[in-house]
């Protein structure tokens, strides 16, 4: 059987119920009025579900947008560098051709 690690997203319920509900309560000085665990879990699960759903229907454009994703920015950078190199090679070839023509 697989033993699920508690940090996996499929155990949101486990994490929230323990972190928000259990743990030692010797309340700190700052009062934090968190809503009831059940309600919070439902709300958060909906967010996670909607992100998963968005990916499923291909609405994951932000992952390839260099402004929103550093990985996309990196990929983009590599592509630009390659394009730059290709163009430079072509210019060199052209310059050589031009030089050859002038000598004649």
């Amino acid at each position: 059987m697989s033993i699920e690690h508690p940090t996996q997203t499929n155990s949101i319920v486990d994490v929230l119920e323990t972190v928000l509900d259990k743990g030692v309560v010797i309340a700190g000085d700052i009062r934090v009025g968190l809503a009831d665990v059940e309600l919070l879990t439902i709300k958060i699960r909906l967010i996670v579900a909607s992100v998963d759903k968005a990916k499923e229907i291909g609405m994951d454009w932000w992952e390839t947008d260099p402004f929103l994703s550093s990985k996309a920015a990196e990929d983009n950078q590599q592509e630009l560098e390659k394009e730059n190199q290709d163009l430079q090679n072509r210019i060199e070839q052209l310059e050589r051709l031009v030089e050859g023509n002038q000598i004649k």
Binding site: V19, D21, A27, D29, L34
Partner: peptide, 23 residues
């Protein structure tokens, strides 16, 4: 939660509830 998991790997820990903050 992940902070407590990390601490737990090194030492026994009495975990506090989320957002236990002292002035």
């Amino acid at each position: 939660h992940e902070a407590l998991l990390t601490i737990r790997e090194a030492l026994p820990v009495v975990p506090m509830k989320f957002c236990t903050i002292y002035a």
